[in-house]
């Protein structure tokens, strides 16, 4: 069996991802590395800095539509949220609230708050969250893409969940506490973070897709992410009591139905899927098999 070549999102750098998502040549970076907005804190720890503080932000077009985009660089300190890193994303979102592009696209690849800047990163992450909620109020949708090698955890996990829609590959991981953190705090019986299959079926793109937080599951192929993102651009739905009551009812029903499950396989079984097959299914196969 030969494989169809793929342009891996998982392996690409933040800049390669941005270039692959936007129309060729359309990207204009804001505060590019030449501007050298580095972390004012890492030096004190003797840690290396990056001229973009691990995040690329700017504007461009996607299928001709004007979009703003940011991309976390997992290869720099795990894509962690530091002061400057967070401020760039917040600034971009506030820019979008004023200028109203067709969408903001966020490429997440982050273990969460940068511990050397824990307070700045945590506060910064909530500034991003507020900015997302405000830009949505202005009608601009925020679309999150998950599939980087660092996953999307902690403050970034919550931030991405504030998006209007998420697109993920099966390689994506999304949760608040990372498996290593749960294992460290609660013990290996609570979560064996070395059991990679367990990690992925718990936090991975497929489980998130089957619950609906991820609306499109794609293969690890940048053009697939691009097509999915383009298809999801539509004005952000306003928050109303009715829409949030419906969201709440959906989340409560999930607890009623699956709250006693201790393994994703039990959930998939209950959903009527062949739980042993799910990990091996392609994005298209699982999309077809997903219960309505």
């Amino acid at each position: 069996m030969k494989l169809t070549p793929r342009i891996s999102f998982y392996e690409a750098s933040a800049r390669q991802r941005v270039a692959g998502i936007l129309d060729p040549g359309s990207f204009r970076e804001i505060l590019p590395p030449t501007e050298q907005r580095i972390s004012p804190h890492l030096g004190m720890f003797g840690a290396p800095v990056a001229f973009d503080d691990g995040v690329v932000a700017g504007e461009g077009t996607l299928d001709g539509k004007e979009v703003y985009i940011f991309a976390q660089e997992g290869k720099f300190r795990g894509g962690s949220l530091g002061e400057v890193h967070a401020a760039k994303i917040t600034g971009l979102l506030r820019r979008a609230a004023i200028r109203k592009p067709a969408a903001v696209i966020g490429l997440f690849d982050s273990g969460g708050v940068r511990l050397e800047e824990a307070n700045a990163g945590e506060i910064g992450s909530t500034e991003i969250m507020r900015a997302i909620l405000e830009v949505q109020r202005a009608g601009v949708p925020v679309i999150g893409l998950l599939g980087g090698s660092c996953g999307c955890f902690g403050g970034s996990g919550i931030t991405s969940s504030c998006c209007d829609a998420l697109i993920a590959s099966e390689e994506a991981r999304l949760s608040v506490s990372g498996p290593e953190v749960i294992e460290t705090v609660m013990g290996v019986e609570a979560f064996d973070s070395h059991d990679r299959a367990l990690v992925w079926r718990t936090t991975g793109g497929k489980n998130r897709f089957l619950f609906g937080k991820v609306v499109t599951l794609v293969d690890d192929h940048i053009p697939a992410f691009r097509a999915a993102a383009s298809a999801l651009i539509k004005p952000s739905e306003p928050l109303t009591v009715a829409s949030l009551r419906a969201e709440r009812a959906r989340l409560a029903k999930r607890i009623d139905e699956y709250g006693s499950c201790t393994d994703a396989r039990q959930i998939w079984q209950k959903m009527g899927l062949d739980a042993d097959r799910v990990p091996d299914m392609t994005a298209a196969e699982l999309t077809a098999a997903k219960p309505a």
Binding site: I158, S175, V176, I182, A190, T202, K213, E247, R248
Partner: peptide
Amino acid sequence: GQRMALDEELLVLPEYIAHLLRAQQL
């Protein structure tokens, strides 16, 4: 802090927290 447990993350804890944030924004 957030509840640290596999079964909570299994059901997508960040989505529940984001829902609570959306209610605050509403």
